[in-house]
Amino acid sequence: MKIMNRRKFLKKAILFIPAVGVLRRLVGDAHGKATAEGYDPANHLYGMGIDIDKCIGCGLCIDACKNENNVPKEPFFCRTWVERYVIKKDGSVVVESIETGKEKGRQKTNEADILRSFFVPKLCNQCENPPCVQVCPVGATFATEDGVVLVDSKRCIGCRYCIQACPYGARYLHPETRTADKCTFCYHRIVKGLLPACVEVCPTQARIFGDLKSMASRLVRFKRTKRIHVLKPHLNTEPKVYYASLDGEVR
């Protein structure tokens, strides 16, 4: 009896040993420096400010983001998008996501009916307390030390629990990789001192990017001088995307 089990065990062991080598090779090259030279994530904490009074709804940010980050061009996959709010005199609210390209959605509401109207850029809020990270079963999404929530596209199993858990609709399943994808604040740019693509192209500086750990950053100045609100504060996600002049109708 026991001998049989031992034999089984040995057989298994023999099968396993070549597998070890294969697996090790699959995992590939060893540890290396994580980011650009001289960059220490411990010294940074990134956030974004959005000045709604300045957004003109031109949609350049959406195009730039798709361009920079290999986001599918179709309007169903967005790392960032811009919503148009039209609050009418009868109290009804019409919201639409503006389309980029030639048909940049001209507002259709009769102007005489408008009480107020404005644009709201949206993107991943890079929450301090991210529900998407909490629910990922394999730990493929995580927050970096400098405050950006990333997705490991080599390990994401595509269960889409994070998409369900995100209150802001900021995640989508990338149709090519079949993994969850989202805004990274253009992590590959910011660690090299560049601005995120959407901030770079924003013609009115409605988007302000900066480092919360540096008192002299534009973002900290923005937070000091504006009245700040975040999206869905009651969910306690503690977003790091700060809105100035945010209307109560925005959800």
Partner: peptide, 29 residues
């Protein structure tokens, strides 16, 4: 059997950051 790197979350995170950082820049600034 399993290489420790397959189980090491820190390793996965570092390599994700590396991959993220290595992505192509389109907008020069």
């Amino acid at each position: 059997v399993l290489p420790s790197s397959l189980i090491d979350t820190r390793f996965h995170r570092e390599s994700t950051v590396q991959r993220e950082v290595a992505k192509n820049i389109q907008f020069a600034g």
